[in-house]
Design a protein around this nucleic acid. Structure first.
Length: 244
DNA sequence: AGTAGTGTTCGGCC
DNA sequence: TGGCCGAACACTAC
């Protein structure tokens, strides 16, 4: 489910509920006051990276699907919903997700230029942020939601393979064209991810993630748990250069 | 059939 | 004070 492009798919899928009034709200969430939602009109749906945002006139529900979260539109699962929104016609159900009410205006909270899928995305800001952390590993930089909001582990592995950079390269040691390629490919692959996910052909197009052999050099991929968060990294030690 | 993982937060511990 | 670690979430795919 949950990398940025999947949230864009969710946002598109729920558009019919934009502008609609919530007739009833329920679920097993401990952080949501369901009373507050009933009778409220959804102004619009937004997203920031992996955050899905349901906007009302005076507050916003932030939904994060984490690793296992899921949703159903006009359908229900067996398990109890964390948040279930009922409309005059249809319903929207979320499961195993993290919910939070945001009271402040979103523009005060979110840097829209950091979201690789957003039209406000600005690579100059990403470059500036990376330059302020020269000792950071590129694998950590790509997963840093303040720099590349929406990028997850699959996108990280695919981007680094495509631009031939070793995940343990230091941000400050990347030649400037490689820095640029990082920002360009993070966006480019995210939109390819979006299209392939819609076609249900995402996995078929993986070149590195979960793969055994490098398609360029025909040698085994390294599989290591790297970076601050010890996430799975698949990389080729021949074609992916380590800048240190 | 068991296990790891597209992610993040939080609390405990050193 | 801060960084590191495990737990929690609950399901699917290999």
């Amino acid at each position: 489910m949950p990398e940025g492009p999947s949230i864009v798919i969710l946002k598109e899928a729920v558009q019919s509920f934009a502008g609609k009034k919530i007739m009833a709200a329920l679920g097993n969430s401990k952080t949501i006051d369901f009373q507050r939602l009933t009778g409220k009109k959804i102004i619009e749906f937004k997203s920031w990276g992996k955050h899905f945002l349901i906007c009302f006139s005076d507050f916003t529900i932030r939904i994060h699907l984490l690793l296992f979260g899921s949703y159903r539109i006009n359908e229900r699962k067996e398990t109890p919903a964390r948040l279930s929104l009922h409309f005059k016609k249809g319903e929207l159900n979320f499961y195993a997700c993290s919910l939070k009410i945001i009271e402040r205006p979103l523009d005060e909270i979110y840097d829209w230029t950091a979201d690789v899928m957003n039209e406000c995305w600005d690579p100059k800001n990403a470059l500036k942020k990376m330059k302020s952390h020269p000792g950071m590993l590129v694998c950590d930089a790509l997963l840093d939601q303040q720099i590349f909001s929406g990028v997850g582990n699959i996108i990280k592995n695919e981007v680094l393979f495509r631009i031939r950079i070793h995940p343990e390269s230091l941000v400050g040691k990347l030649p400037s064209p490689k820095m640029k390629a990082l920002t360009t490919e993070a966006v480019n692959y995210s939109f390819q991810f979006l299209e392939w996910k819609k076609e249900f052909t995402l996995k078929k197009h993986w070149l590195a993630h979960n793969k055994k052999t490098c398609p360029r050099d025909h040698v085994p991929f390294r599989k290591e748990y790297l970076g601050k968060t010890n996430r799975r990294s698949f990389f080729c030690t021949i074609c992916q250069l380590k800048y240190v």
